[in-house]
Amino acid sequence: MIPASFEYARPRTVEEAVGQLALAGEEAKVLAGGQSLLPILRMRLAFPELLVDVGRIPGLRGVRTDGDTLVIGALTSHHDVVHDPLVRRHAGLLAAATATVADPAVRHRGTIGGSLAHADPAGDVPAAVLALDAELVVQGPDGRRSVPAREFFTDYLQTALRPDELLVEVRVPKADAWGFHYEKFQLSAQAWAVVGVAALVRRDDGRIVESRVGLSNMGPTPVRATACEEALAGADAAPDAVASAADSAAEGTRPASDLSASAEYREHLARVLTRRAVLAAADLT
């Protein structure tokens, strides 16, 4: 279908974009890669009066380091995240999760900022960013503020972003010392995750020191498998200990039942996929 009419603005700076958003209020939508927004407009599920195309604002694209932090511009495409040497070295989990998003053409256009702002709980990027304990930097009329990933996702497709704020960068603490793995269960190629598990594990020889496990599609927002993380802290780095910790992966989650899976099946998947992801992240496979 053809989208309903809208006005179009192409600001050249973040300040200009934020000004246009503030003026238009709820009637405006940010356009980044368009890989979530344009399908929504084509299906006439939304009717914004103004699209603010931030796609050409300089400085919002690319990856750099700032001490122990990796700084990823919100407009960096999925394709660039997957191939960036700094991301691969310091946040391999993010590259691994992003590589499973959609297909190459969607990854050429879609951006990390768009994935996070869209906040689909079935998305692969939000769970990885959550496991990496990233900070999301947003800019509004009053300047910048930083929101921890744990506080960013507030409800189904809802975030801490205000209508006049732009997500500008994602700050990821370098995770060089962590093993990682993203395990995605999907019903067909190019499909969204039925359930996805983003795991980070830090171990010394025989023990798991610490772990962080992010879950996709196990509730209205991406969530951390807190009970499982606690059970893994100090556990033997051995398949049995990991399997028993992974049994608690679905605790506290609220998965939906839909055409792809029942809630019960999603809980089962969370346990199985968490076991696989943690074993791989701990180098126990």
Binding site: Y8, D53, V106, R109
Partner: peptide, 19 residues
């Protein structure tokens, strides 16, 4: 609908002409 835009494959049904 795939075409090449500035050296990369894109789905041209999900890109605006103005983009």
């Amino acid at each position: 609908c795939m075409v090449d835009l500035d050296g990369k494959s894109v789905k041209s049904c999900s890109v605006l002409a103005v983009q």
